[in-house]
């Protein structure tokens, strides 16, 4: 492993990643360290324009965009009502994950856990019966993903 994981949750996510890798490759995965490391993060930003945390906060809260509070609790945003409890709380999330790790989790969390309920926010292909007005489009565009990540990066313990 190229990284030290400290909490069981993170370790479990890595387990999911290994499995998805095995499933996708359909062949035995050798020692795996390199591939596993590659599957746990997405280093390259999606845009040249750096993310804007203030805009990202809007993406996070907007019910038609990130709608992150539908599933996640965030004390830092308690002025908004009705926080979900389907996913883990996001306070301090940037102390638990790097931005590159968060990017993969926003772009395509199924790369880590194939059975997750979490939508892939930057995926527009391989989806089943998408409503016409959303067809061919990801939930967030590339800049919105980067803005969101800039906001998530501010959520330190």
């Amino acid at each position: 492993m190229s990284k030290k994981y400290t909490t069981p949750f993170v370790a479990a996510v890595v387990g999911g990643a290994v499995l998805s890798l095995a499933a996708v490759c359909a062949q035995p995965v050798s020692a795996g360290t390199v591939e596993v490391a590659a599957m746990t993060e997405m280093k390259d930003p999606l845009t040249k324009q750096p993310g804007d945390a203030a805009k990202g906060k809007g993406v996070f809260a907007n019910r038609k965009l990130g709608n992150c509070l539908a599933c996640h609790k965030l004390e830092a945003m308690k002025e908004q009502s009705f926080h979900g409890e389907v996913g883990p709380p996001l306070d301090g999330v940037a102390s638990r994950y790097s931005v590159a790790e968060l990017r993969l989790r926003v772009v395509d969390p199924k790369a880590l856990n194939p059975d997750t309920i979490m939508p892939s926010f930057y995926k527009s292909e391989g989806l089943h019966r998408v409503l016409k007005k959303f067809a061919g489009k990801p939930i967030l565009d590339a800049q919105q993903v980067e803005d969101l990540l800039a906001y998530l990066a501010t959520l330190k313990e």
Binding site: E85, I117, K123, K137
Partner: peptide
């Protein structure tokens, strides 16, 4: 069990995996 839509969720993801959990309101 078939994922569907832009949010890519199957019935089971909410109703088998998370009954009892708060989803927004």
């Amino acid at each position: 069990n078939q994922r569907r839509g832009q949010l890519d969720m199957a019935c089971k993801h909410c109703h088998e995996d998370f009954p009892g959990a708060q989803l927004r309101a």
